[in-house]
Design a protein around this nucleic acid. Structure first.
Lengths: 118, 118
DNA sequence: CAATCAATCAACCAAAAAGATGAATGATAG
DNA sequence: CTATCATTCATCTTTTTGGTTGATTGATTG
């Protein structure tokens, strides 16, 4: 029971990380860039933005923590590549919410038809 | 052209609002609550949380700005109800990203088979 | 009209986030 | 060994965010 709670909490926190990471326009632009042009080193990615290399590096770390990108250190460059999997966590949350919503409506509908039948 | 840009920017900002709103655990809990138990007044919603009524009111305004809830002022209570539609904006972004990614892989695959054929 | 109740507004505080700059690490090339 | 290059670490500043409390608005009831 406590364990379930902990797992729920963990997935909850993970979802928060993913949504927070995805909620920044710069970070979404990084993801799009990586999806379009494949794995890139940090300097290369930073070249597409107005801000400093350091800021981009920080954004990438946020994405990394959320699991939205992975790092493959090859040669002396860090190759960053997009990871789609965590986005499915968002999908799942959405689907859950929608199902809860639909369930309530169904129950309500059921109740109403019962009332009418009386 | 400029117009297209503006529209893109707008939908971009909207998506940012939606993701930012959804990225807070309290706000997600509010959405779940509303999906489970239907439209509720602010005081009622606040009853489920440890924090002050004012804080909850502020959270609801964030959700409202993102379009994730709607307000129906009835009697002297404000009835808040969840709105699923904006969440599809997230879905759309996800689908777009995934399609861009798939396109690149496809092109890469095509290129490789061409090379092998030589 | 007075009292009450739902909700917001206004001002404030602390913590987190986004950005910049300069120093430090770590691998590679000469 | 030294110079260079990619990246991160440390520090600082500004802005945003999540929260509080107290006053205010606006409708309702006695």
């Amino acid at each position: 029971m406590l364990f379930i709670r902990m797992v729920e909490q963990e997935s909850h926190d993970k979802l928060t990380d993913i949504l927070k990471a995805a909620s920044d326009p710069t970070r979404r632009a990084v993801l799009t860039l990586l999806a379009q042009h494949g794995p890139q080193c940090v300097t290369n990615i930073a070249g597409h933005f107005e801000m400093s290399l350091n800021s981009v590096s920080k954004h990438i770390k946020v994405l990394e923590k959320a699991g939205l990108v992975a790092r493959r250190t090859e040669w002396r460059e860090h190759l960053i590549e997009v990871q789609m999997a965590p986005l499915e966590e968002i999908d799942r949350w959405f689907a859950d919410l929608r199902s809860i919503w639909a369930q309530r409506l169904e129950a309500l509908d059921h109740l109403l038809t019962q009332e009418t039948a009386k």
